[in-house]
Design a protein around this nucleic acid. Structure first.
Lengths: 341, 341
DNA sequence: CTGTTAGCGCGTTCAA
DNA sequence: TTGAACGCGCTAACAG
């Protein structure tokens, strides 16, 4: 390993001068700078990040904590963050949390051991008070896909209510007055918000959505163990109940696809017999058949934005601006919804 | 920030003793250890990784360099690596290379600045000599999904020839004697290997695959700009040429799905009219319709293995074992291939 | 079993 | 404009 001393000796200058050249700071004579730079290139010198972080008390690291990196949605977060980080020559360190609050804390702590001040956290279930305490200690901690009133200015999140409303508005315009909703848990924020958005939209048209038209995973019991099983269960329920619906709003794309498959299996065609709309706009939405009409979640942009915000907070030592960062979804029209007007 | 000194002072011992307790190494009196541990917990002391890495000359980091993390296949590599890294309390740093050899080198260099000795590199196009030079300098550099004869013991790769053979064997058993192949470039290793595997299989049955039955992206010219366009082009070619085929072997799942969609668009049903088989076994393969029969690529396991191998090489300072690490694919039977016997 | 000493490679004073 | 000296927090070698 070639150190700053080696370069200094070779160039016949002091280590401090080399340091100035490397960082492009301070006053260095033009000739001197050129000579040192030449030696640096020749010797292939690269500053030791650890030593640097040790002395300057900050590492050039962005940490990202998400539930499961192999899922496309979270992979996109990592992708967006890496993109923004690279622009300022920062590195990305990642950690999976499995959606377990304990694992999240652990991940954050170990990130901090590396001197990582910039952390993008995707926490759906972390305790607000705990998170607040952490935020006070970590100047670059920001939250993606969650809104915490006390930490509003550090939250980068999506307007799920609008997303739900947009999906419902779109369906309504296509002539669908009777719809069903398939989601997970009633009380989870995102899920509740999206459902509320749908209800708002329909209320605006003087319509209500009967309780029987809403299927929730929490009501499915233990008989279903994975997404497809749940979707099959949901579709069976819907079809067996004495209700009328021409379209299904799924919580997300994965579920929408599961529902389409279940419908096909039961002899229903999408969108001819029943329309389906998703949420997220994952890659798969354009690859499945019929391609999925869905609500676009600008997750890559959000992750980039979150990273830049975090960086700005630590680099410019500026507090987060006194506002929250709310992104808007948008409907992407594809082939899974039929116009029945 | 609470340092080792703070703990030492508080506990009335020397920093070295605290260090020994923290690392669980060396001899420390039972009572003494308990007391120090108590103070550590109370004060919330966490060792500074940078200082540690500086003095011990090694960081507890695994670097992973892949072309594009947001794609499920590469996301799985990151996932597997993180899993293995976490077991030994290492962190993962990642970098996207966009498949550009320059960016790869750059990524590796910046990883090294962090003192990262463990690097999992997914490089399809990197120059073998350059890679060899890097490997000599980086004791924990391993290659995933590539075989370099000179660095065989550091390569974790898949037997693509067998994969191609398995796909073809499976098709043959299902009664398909006339098949088409859709792939990218003739000379790329993986693609050539898989095609060769297919040819071997058929040769074993006394059959050959006519050149006209093989469509390559490189022959498509510039008119196609994305995967779906290419698949549509490929299917059109196949259908317009005066050839006979009952099944299509696609280079990978993404392509297989594009091909299925193109076939549907042209009024052909899968698998009734034409069967399709993919490669990779991405999540999407079980979600698409018909679900895709494909060749399973054990990429998560391979990434875990690669990480453990790298760790072993650096931690135990042992050279890589004198053998290469070749994983075998396997056929996953789903619904996109019809038995026409 | 425990403490003392001496750096790891670098950035940042402060003098010169 | 340059250099010398110091210390970031920690581990390792050596004494005791």
């Amino acid at each position: 390993m070639v150190t700053i001393k080696d370069v200094a000796r070779e160039a016949g200058v002091s280590p401090s001068t080399v340091s100035r050249v490397v960082r492009g700071q301070g006053k260095v004579g033009k000739k001197c700078r050129a000579k040192v730079q030449k030696i640096i290139d020749e010797m292939g010198y690269r500053p030791n990040t650890n030593a640097r972080a040790l002395v300057s008390q900050r590492s050039e690291l962005v940490g990202i904590v998400t539930p499961a990196l192999h899922k496309p949605f979270f992979g996109s977060i990592a992708y967006g963050a890496e993109k923004a980080a690279r622009e300022v020559a920062f590195h990305v360190m990642m950690r999976n949390s499995q959606n377990e609050p304990e694992a999240e804390i652990d991940a954050i702590n170990s990130l901090r051991e590396h001197g990582c001040e910039n952390i993008i956290l995707h926490s759906k279930f972390g305790d607000p008070d705990t998170l607040k305490t952490m935020a006070e200690k970590i100047s670059g901690l920001v939250f993606i896909n969650r809104f915490l009133p006390d930490l509003a200015s550090r939250c980068i999140w999506l307007d799920n209510v609008s997303g739900g409303r947009m999906a419902a508005d779109y369906l309504y315009k296509q002539g669908h007055k009777d719809i069903a909703i398939v989601s997970f848990i009633r009380e989870n924020e995102d899920q509740r918000d999206r459902i509320n958005g749908v209800k708002q939209s329909f209320a605006g048209h003087g319509l209500t959505i009967p309780t029987e038209n809403i299927i929730l995973r929490e009501d499915a019991g233990t008989e279903v163990s994975n997404m497809q099983e749940y979707c099959t269960y949901a579709v069976k329920e819907l079809l067996s109940r004495d209700i009328r619906f021409t379209a299904v709003i799924a919580y997300n794309d994965e579920m929408a696809i599961g529902i389409m498959n279940a419908l096909f299996d039961m002899g229903k065609n999408v969108p001819e017999d029943i329309s389906v709309i998703g949420f997220d706009d994952l890659d798969i939405a354009q690859k499945c058949r019929p391609s999925l009409t869905t609500v676009h979640y600008p997750i890559v942009e959000m992750a980039e934005y979150a990273t830049k915000l975090s960086l700005q907070m630590t680099l410019e030592k500026s507090e987060a601006p006194g506002r929250t960062h709310l992104f808007m979804p948008s409907v992407i029209e594809r082939k899974s919804v039929k116009n029945i007007n």
